[in-house]
Design a protein around this nucleic acid. Structure first.
Lengths: 214, 214
DNA sequence: CAAACTTACTGAACACTGTTCATTTTGTCA
DNA sequence: TGACAAAATGAACAGTGTTCAGTAAGTTTG
């Protein structure tokens, strides 16, 4: 017979393996869902379509996710990781205002280059339901805090005036408005081939006019 | 036998009545769809649900609309009419900048007071598909032109600097961003009971900082 | 007025969707 | 190998948009 300690170790080992296998299955599902989103659009992510992709039956997916919304929420979280990495690249810009300018450009670029991810992060209903249910949104808050920091620096340096929270919401809404109106096909006044320069131009015109002093 | 003229008159009379009846049926469908949207949310608008509401079979609806998207598009057009009426109320404000300020407030108010209509106008995919297919968006352009006029006045009066088209896209994106982030539950940093004042405040802080000279 | 024609409408059928759950298969341990 | 537990299945339920052969109602003509 095993000692109490050895038995414990074995049980914990099994538990860990099970846990690992569970995570691997979740990853399999999320990868498949992500693949479908990128190649066919996020609205084509269906349980049956994922099941087909990973060669499991539809019912199996429900052993790892409570419902479709949870899959979309997890996908949204992964998208935020990717976005956050991109966002961090502005860190090495010294001048706060120049940093803010680039910050917005990076945001718009991410939205235009990763429309399906952007939809999941900021437009699609499903992740919003989870956010509301959980009464928190760590993913969104983390990138919002990063923006706030930048805005705080701008206020401290005299580039901007006003409450940092309010200014951050305003700046975020500006870039989100630009990207989301385009993604949802409400930028009919701009020919498709000019969208990118026009969005950058609109953002920069706004942010430059916004600059105080100097 | 009838004279050629009398015969023509009769035929045209019938054609008109048929046309009228067709319009009435369309109105019946759109009213039902609008009712469902307001009471249960736009995503609950289904052909079967509308059919039940108007006491016709689902198939009948397809004799008056080519598909569900067309119903949502027509609903979106009706919403724009309502919005345009509200938008016009800022016309009597003399000072261009004061007008612009109020313009934005009216926009935000409309979005918060009519979330389902706002979704259809600026967020939901379906009307966007029609916009893209038709290569035009009269409804959106009309209200955009009205905003542009206001911005032009602001530029002429020295309140704003820059290209009118670009400035208009920027201002529109700002207010759309504020409203749509909230409607899609991405304003987690703001407690629900403060949403209205915070959105107004964010908008006004932005627009006031934006003001040139003075 | 009745027959012929036209228009309006129906509802079953097709191919989808998310989700549940009794049943079966697979894996583990004594 | 037998007993138990865990994992996976796939049929079933209630929905969705859309089509179309068939029926019912309305209109025109002989």
């Amino acid at each position: 017979m095993f000692s109490k300690f050895a038995l414990f170790t074995i049980i914990m080992g099994i538990r860990q393996r099970k846990e690992r296998e569970k995570e691997e299955m979740k990853k399999l599902v999320l990868d498949a869902a992500g693949k479908i989103a990128v190649s066919e659009g996020f609205e084509k992510i269906s349980i049956r379509r994922i099941a087909e992709e990973i060669e499991y039956s539809p019912g199996t997916i429900y052993l790892y996710f409570k419902n479709r919304d949870e899959i979309l929420f997890d996908l949204h979280s992964l998208a935020f990781q990717k976005f956050y990495d991109m966002q961090l690249t502005v860190s090495n810009i010294k001048d706060p205002f120049e940093k803010l300018r680039e910050h917005g450009r990076v945001y718009i670029t991410f939205g235009l280059d990763n429309p399906e991810l952007y939809e999941l992060m900021f437009i699609v209903q499903a992740p919003g339901n989870e956010i509301e249910a959980n009464q928190e949104w760590n993913e969104g808050m983390k990138t919002f805090e990063f923006l706030k920091q930048n805005i705080q620096e701008c206020v401290d340096a005299g580039y901007l005036r006003g409450d940092v929270n309010v200014l951050s919401i305003g700046m975020w809404s500006l870039v989100h408005g630009l990207v989301s109106l385009f993604l949802r096909k409400r930028m009919a006044m701009v020919p498709k081939e000019y969208i990118r320069p026009v969005l950058y131009n609109a953002y920069e015109t706004m942010v430059d006019n916004f600059r105080q002093g100097k």
